[in-house]
Write a protein that binds this DNA or RNA. Structure first.
Lengths: 193, 193
DNA sequence: ACTAATTTGGTACGTTCGTGCCAGACTGAG
DNA sequence: CTCAGTCTGGCACGAACGTACCAAATTAGT
């Protein structure tokens, strides 16, 4: 169901954003009708009124969130015009694009979330087109960044580096006190040296 | 709770194996009291009698399954004595250890499950010691295999290759018709050439 | 202002889940 | 054989869930 009135549209959007928030800090399992309604300050029934099913709501939330992520990536890319491309800063930038902005204390959890989402997509075929689009644009962004910093690389090499980062992350998750970003940084530094 | 009678021990073990089966073909979410009891052909209450909580049951199931996986790995390693180490066969062997034996039609799903489990571990700190142990032994096995096939490599290089495989897999999950094993094979072949 | 369409929000139904309960059946040590 | 300790299994509770329902309130088109 799509809203037909301005106020309705605002309400619908509030639900989408609430769902996206829940998705970010609780994973797919946290996106429930009741939780979304409560976070948006709206009654339970509004979630079923504006969205045919929970999957619909999740899709909308992911779509919204993907937009936010890409906007962040493009902003960081724009900053790079001033091209302070030390190896250290460059690696941090790539990690920020792939893992999100560093989240301090909660970084391990934040990164974990990204991979939970990625893996959970495997069980939700209806999200694949969306994830493919996001992933494609992200790869494009990375190629741009490599080019703009003087390190020209092909698409294949970029995919290899992404795989390296992703693999380092999932393997870091089982450490006693996981620091997936640090593991990824180590791998990336070695591969780029 | 631990069983004190032989028949009780057999029952307990039946529950563990049923839980491991469910874990393998449905992920952590499939391991429920009722499902385990039904698959084992035992009443619901037996699951709470022998295991203090669901987490207890899951831990036992994962432990059991890890044993099975490692046994498979060691068996494949033993076969290698006859050292038919063509590049193709070698890569398939490494993939069999990391992704499990090829599962034909259902391969994508089987591989997905492994990574669901890996990521889900991030939310279950009590499983980390177990996963670390399994992961450590698997790494050791891989080093052995590399050595035995004439390709001597250090631990760091092995971890790099594992990350490459894992990253290739998680990135393959969002393809229109995912074939994670093929993606991993491609990456591995390139890295080993 | 009036009517029809849309939106609202409280409520309820049917499932599934983890877990607790307990009377009865079984089993092994004396 | 006896009986304390162990095990069995049917059952019920409370919570959380997705979703359906519907009378009342609001809004939009004329």
């Amino acid at each position: 169901m799509t809203a037909a009135t301005p106020k309705g549209e605002r309400r619908r959007q509030a639900l989408v954003e609430a769902a996206a928030d829940l998705l970010v800090d609780g994973g797919f399992d946290a996106v429930r009708h009741r939780a979304v309604a409560e976070r948006a300050g709206l009654p339970l029934a509004s979630t079923t009124y504006y969205f045919d099913s929970l999957d619909d709501l999740i899709t909308a939330a992911l779509e919204f969130h993907a937009g936010v992520e890409l906007a962040y990536g493009k902003a960081r890319l724009a900053e790079l015009d001033s091209c302070e491309c030390g190896s250290e800063a460059f690696i941090d930038l790539v990690l920020a694009l792939l893992l999100g902005p560093p989240a301090g204390e909660r970084d391990a959890e934040a990164v974990l979330l990204r991979y939970e989402r990625l893996v959970a997509t495997g069980r939700r075929p209806y999200l694949r087109p969306l994830m493919r689009k996001l992933s494609g644009e992200l790869h494009g962004l990375l190629i741009d960044i490599f080019a703009r910093s003087g390190r020209s690389v092909g698409r294949e090499r970029v995919e290899e580096l992404i795989a390296l980062v992703d693999g380092a992350v999932v393997n870091a998750l089982i450490e006693v006190s996981p620091d997936p970003r640090a593991s990824a940084r180590r791998m990336l530094a070695k591969a780029l040296s």
